Amino acid sequence: MGKLILNVDTGIDDAFAMILLNKYRIFPEFIVAASGNSTLENTYRNTTGITNLLQLGCPVYPGSYKPLVRHHYLEDFHGENGIGCYEFDEVSLENQPNGIIK
């Protein structure tokens, strides 16, 4: 199998996809967490939280804080933090190798 890179806006749906990949022993080289249905801060925290919970051992990089083409659209159907009512530990976007794309 080739290398896998995930680009996610981790809410409940992406978290479930990561769990399924892990179950079938499909491991990404790295993951990019971008804003989508929640803010970049939420999706980055959720992605690192799921990655740590599953012990994936791959880096998580922050992606774009807004869509590249259209207006930003934030929806709260995944809850206020993007992943229902579950709360992961806080993580910082500062001092990341690639910084934040603005």
Rank of each mutant, 00 (worst) to 15 (best):
M1S: 12
M1G: 11
G2E: 08
K3C: 06
K3N: 13
K3T: 14
L4S: 10
I5T: 11
L6Q: 05
L6M: 12
L6C: 14
N7A: 15
V8H: 06
V8W: 04
V8Q: 06
D9A: 15
T10P: 05
I12G: 09
I12R: 08
D13W: 08
D14R: 04
F16G: 04
A17R: 01
A17F: 01
M18A: 07
M18R: 09
L20Y: 08
N22F: 12
N22S: 15
N22T: 15
K23T: 04
K23I: 00
Y24H: 13
Y24V: 11
Y24M: 01
I26Y: 01
F27G: 00
P28S: 04
E29T: 11
E29P: 00
F30H: 13
F30K: 07
F30A: 14
F30M: 12
I31R: 01
I31F: 02
I31G: 04
I31C: 02
V32F: 13
V32G: 01
V32T: 01
A33D: 07
A34C: 15
N37D: 12
S38G: 15
S38K: 06
S38F: 09
T39S: 15
L40F: 09
N42S: 12
T43R: 02
Y44T: 00
Y44D: 01
R45A: 02
N46E: 06
T47K: 05
T47C: 09
T48P: 01
T48C: 11
G49K: 05
I50S: 06
T51P: 03
T51L: 00
N52P: 03
L53M: 15
Q55C: 11
Q55R: 15
Q55H: 15
L56I: 14
G57Q: 03
C58T: 12
C58E: 08
V60P: 05
V60I: 07
V60N: 06
V60K: 05
V60C: 07
Y61V: 00
P62R: 01
P62M: 04
P62W: 02
G63W: 11
G63V: 13
G63N: 13
S64Y: 07
K66A: 13
V69D: 08
R70P: 00
Y73E: 12
L74P: 02
L74Y: 02
L74Q: 03
L74D: 00
L74I: 14
L74E: 08
E75D: 15
E75R: 14
D76E: 14
D76G: 09
F77I: 12
H78R: 05
H78V: 00
H78I: 03
G79E: 08
G79Q: 08
E80S: 11
E80V: 07
E80A: 12
N81Q: 10
G82R: 01
I83G: 01
I83T: 05
G84P: 11
G84K: 08
G84C: 09
C85Q: 10
E87S: 13
F88T: 04
D89H: 09
V91A: 05
V91P: 02
V91R: 10
E94I: 02
E94G: 07
E94F: 02
N95R: 10
Q96I: 03
Q96F: 03
P97Y: 04
G99T: 07
I100E: 05
I100M: 02
I101N: 04
I101C: 05
K102S: 06
